[in-house]
Amino acid sequence: GIDPFTGEAIAKFNFNGDTQVEMSFRKGERITLLRQVDENWYEGRIPGTSRQGIFPITYVDVIKRPL
């Protein structure tokens, strides 16, 4: 089901994660935001896939912030 505490964002740019914990994505992908890790990073996942990880806040347009 849908978790009411998650947020939502759209990727503004392609992001290629450097490490296992970073999640790569392509511009235009819809991302579920799980939490804000710190002032620069979100943790999120791509709905319908097993992809999950952290990524820079500046790479996405936030539609709804996670609670």
Rank of each mutant, 00 (worst) to 15 (best):
G53W: 01
I2Q: 14
R45P: 00
E29W: 04
D61N: 11
N14W: 05
P66C: 09
Y59H: 12
G28Q: 03
P66S: 07
N16K: 11
I63C: 08
I57R: 09
N16L: 11
A11H: 00
P4I: 13
L34C: 08
Q20R: 11
P47L: 10
G44R: 00
Q20N: 12
N40G: 11
P66L: 07
M23P: 00
I54K: 07
S50K: 12
E39P: 10
E29P: 00
S50Q: 11
V37A: 04
I57N: 06
P66F: 04
G17L: 03
P66T: 05
W41C: 08
P56I: 03
G28E: 03
F5M: 12
V37L: 12
R35C: 09
G7W: 15
G44D: 00
D18M: 14
F5K: 11
Q20W: 12
V62F: 07
A9Q: 02
R51A: 03
Q36Y: 07
R35I: 05
M23Y: 01
G17M: 04
I10H: 04
N14P: 07
K27D: 03
I46C: 02
F5E: 11
S50W: 08
F55P: 01
F15E: 00
I63V: 10
W41L: 07
V21N: 14
G44W: 02
A11M: 01
L33T: 02
R51N: 03
Q36W: 07
I31K: 00
I57V: 12
Y42G: 03
Y59A: 11
P4S: 14
G48R: 06
G7S: 09
Q36C: 09
V37N: 02
E29C: 03
V62E: 04
T58K: 12
R65I: 14
N40E: 12
G48Y: 08
G44M: 01
G53A: 01
P56Q: 03
R26V: 14
A9D: 00
N16Y: 14
K12C: 09
G7H: 13
A9N: 01
R35D: 03
I46H: 02
R65D: 15
V62Y: 05
F55T: 00
E29K: 01
A9H: 02
V21C: 15
K64T: 08
N14V: 05
E22S: 08
I31Y: 00
Y42I: 05
E43M: 12
V62C: 05
D38S: 11
E22Y: 12
R35K: 09
F15D: 03
E8W: 15
P56V: 03
S50N: 14
T32I: 14
F25I: 06
T6C: 14
W41H: 11
G28N: 06
D61S: 10
E43K: 05
R51I: 05
I31M: 04
I63E: 05
L67A: 15
L67C: 15
K64R: 10
E43A: 07
G7Q: 09
I2S: 14
E22V: 05
R45K: 12
T6E: 12
S50P: 10
F13C: 15
P4T: 13
E22N: 06
L34Q: 05
T32N: 07
I10W: 06
F15K: 01
T49M: 03
Q52R: 12
S24Q: 05
I10E: 05
V21L: 13
W41P: 00
E22A: 08
N14I: 04
R30Y: 11
I57P: 04
I31T: 02
G48S: 06
R51H: 03
L67R: 13
E43R: 05
R26C: 14
D3I: 12
